[in-house]
């Protein structure tokens, strides 16, 4: 599915500077970015280029040093902590590289967790949790603990947790980084399917094979956007330069 054209995220001149006693590190330098609703974006670039910092700012886990961040028409750059938590809970779904499931909670409870913070009634939570688990094919494992699942299964549960609250955007940080290629491919297929169903996805990856799944790739280098590829062609080119064969 392609974007519906409505602007979901707007970053304008976003910078992020980390200060230490002796050094100022410019992690992001004047990022301008627009993500439309229903779009699937990949953020790529070498290690240390600022991909994760950008994703943290997009996910309201961090705030920019300067610049504007508008999410769903509302400026969110300088929200207080509790409001940021509320926006994170309702507007954003996170998928982490290391799954970040809570070991003491079973699959059902892990998926239910963001909904409990929303104060949703139990019956509605149950409906949404089961729907999300059905969607990722993990409903039959609802009572299992994370430690009883494979890595691929854990990431599918993490995806279910991210989508259960019907957020405005899914932020995926190297979602295949801890998976073998087969499981990685399965998770990417799951994301594609979610995208086809209308989800807006922003994925950080340094694997060009997965970047090509996106509608658009943004390449960062030293905290700046150095290239935007609207068709994902650059990803394919990089893949070919790496010796892989791309079928057209």
């Amino acid at each position: 599915m392609t974007s519906s054209g409505q602007t979901l995220i707007h970053l304008d001149g976003v910078t992020k500077v980390f200060f230490t006693d002796e050094v100022e590190t410019h992690a992001l330098a004047g990022i301008h970015l627009e993500i439309k609703s229903g779009e699937y974006i990949a953020i790529a670039g070498p290690s240390g280029c600022g991909k994760s910092t950008l994703l943290s700012i997009l996910g309201l886990l961090d705030s920019p040093t300067e610049g504007k961040y508008v999410l769903n028409g509302k400026s969110v750059a300088d929200l207080p902590l509790s409001e940021r938590a509320r926006v994170r809970n309702r507007e954003i779904g996170f998928i982490f590289q290391s799954f970040n499931l809570i070991g003491d909670l079973n699959v059902y409870e892990n998926v239910e967790l963001p909904l409990t913070y929303r104060g949703m009634k139990s019956a509605e939570r149950k409906e949404r949790v089961m729907a999300a688990l059905e969607k990722v094919g993990m409903a039959h494992r609802a009572k299992h603990l994370p430690s009883q699942l494979s890595g691929g299964q854990q990431q599918r549960v993490a995806v279910a947790r991210a989508v259960a609250g019907s957020p405005s955007i899914l932020l995926a940080d190297e979602p295949t980084g801890n998976l073998d290629s087969k499981n990685g491919e399965a998770v990417m297929e799951l994301l594609r399917e979610l995208h086809r169903e209308g989800a807006t996805i922003c994925m950080v990856t340094h694997d060009p094979r997965y970047a090509r799944h996106a509608d658009r790739s943004i390449h960062l280098f030293d905290g700046r956007v150095v290239e935007e590829d609207g068709t994902g062609k650059r990803g394919e080119r990089e893949l070919e330069e790496s010796g892989f064969h791309i079928e057209h």
């Binding site: 996910g59 938590a85 070991g103 967790l113 913070y117």
Partner: peptide
């Protein structure tokens, strides 16, 4: 710490 971080990333308020 990590679990609490995950919970906060998922929208847990300080009171939670």
């Amino acid at each position: 710490t990590r679990e609490i971080g995950v919970r906060m990333a998922l929208g847990a308020q300080p009171s939670n």
